[in-house]
Nucleic acid binder design. Structure first.
Lengths: 244, 244
DNA sequence: CGCAAATTTGAACGTAGTCAACAAGTGTGG
DNA sequence: CCACACTTGTTGACTACGTTCAAATTTGCG
């Protein structure tokens, strides 16, 4: 049986037929290894490909004229990346590896074929995109209307939950794998202030820290403080068309 | 010939066949009138429908526990709304009318049918969603990494450009149709500070104002100051499958 | 071990928020 | 037609959250 990272991810929400799994697997025929800090796609470079992240952790970001950076999204195994290239000739964002990674590049045409031959998969992919869009609006709300402490707490929760999806071993303690500067670029803060917020969360008894490892000391209170919503819950996919 | 707002919008990017137009038109069979301030969908209400905005201006927003509001998106004729309901049982956002509006509700199932019978339209809709997603990341970058003045200038430009798409009459002067509080809730600022930023933009000679009407005095300099990118440009849809 | 990157802390500063008062505009009912 | 209430816009004074700058310390890696 051909294994597919994306099919596994999708399969968490939709029961896939063997034929569908097979079709998805064709998106992952090629493989590319990327070292830590390796750039997969550069902002404003020509972008004709999409990717499935198979192994490792990546992120996408935008650089501004003044040199500041806004991290848009952290990427985990099973995530589809560079999807903007279905619309734009040039990539609107940079995608870079945070750890050593394996990615599977495929052409827009392969997506077209998949959607044509398997409308239900096309619909399911659209669902994934919407989930991602809603997560993005959650972050928008965070940046626009919540305090620094809440934003940092919220990011910690989100990262832990996303990691746990493909590594169920992870409990209330996990390795963050981000510098404080990266946390800042994701939450719209400076590295210095991120440091202070982490200290406060620690002093509040909400988290513990030791060399890159974060421990949730009171997850309920932390989630409440971060007004965090898990967007992998509350799904309703009953409308999907029949498998072909 | 059946007219369809959504088909017109989509038709700006993709040459639609009469059959395709017809299929899209079936999404707009029903119509619903909404008065100004009328709520179409309420956050956390059961959400099984999508909508096409046919006439008027709407917005979507999220309310926080402390009563503050983050506006996510402004909606114009041809926009598809409430798409999150293809993924979630409950709506993650509220959608409300800013002017008297006409909307066309349709079921998730109608979308499923459309994607099955017309894969190319499914792909084209996916492209629209990606364009919207990129706009959202633009706003995320704005909130995370730009000053209050830049955010306000950027919003003005975006609103004018979106209005101009369906009303080519609009030039460097237009009616905003938003209160300063609404501008603030979209840009993550207080109404008071929005007022000061508008005054500064005016004092800088970038804009003029008189009772709700905004005038761009120096659009080039304004766009540069707002590091604004028009996401209706730079498209490449050559990969779309053949029309059926 | 030695060096560069990352973290930590303090002090001063500045952008945006808060609070308050007033003006201007809008709609309603007497 | 006017009086009144209510929303929206405007400005000033003060506050506070987060930034900037700088320096010390720790960590991780070659």
């Amino acid at each position: 049986m051909a294994s597919s990272c994306f099919a596994d991810h999708l399969g968490d929400f939709v029961a896939l037929t063997p034929t569908e799994r097979d079709a998805i697997h064709r998106l992952e025929e090629r493989e590319r290894i990327l070292r830590r800090t390796g750039i997969l796609v550069r902002e404003n470079d020509r972008a004709g490909e999409l990717f499935i992240l198979k192994r490792g952790m990546m992120m996408s970001y935008v650089l501004l004229d003044d040199g500041s950076r806004q991290i848009l999204r952290f990427l985990f195994p099973g995530d589809m990346m560079g999807v903007a290239s279905i619309a734009y000739a040039l990539s609107p964002e940079t995608i870079v590896a945070l750890t050593d990674c394996t990615v599977c590049p495929f052409e827009c045409g392969a997506l077209a074929q998949l959607m044509t031959e398997h409308p239900r998969l096309g619909a399911a992919i659209m669902v994934l995109h919407q989930m991602e869009r809603v997560s993005l609006t959650d972050r928008l709300v965070g940046l626009g209307r919540t305090s620094a402490k809440v934003r940092v707490a919220s990011l910690l929760l989100e990262l832990r939950n996303r990691m746990r999806r493909f590594d169920p071993e992870i409990g209330s303690s996990f390795v963050l794998g981000l510098t404080q500067e990266e946390i800042g670029d994701a939450t719209g803060l400076t590295a210095v202030h991120v440091n202070r917020m982490l200290r406060q969360l620690e002093d509040d008894g909400l988290i513990g820290r030791e060399n890159g490892r974060v421990l949730f000391r009171d997850e309920v209170r932390l989630a409440r403080a971060a007004n965090y919503v898990d967007r992998f819950e509350g799904l309703d996919l009953s409308w999907l068309p029949a498998a072909r």
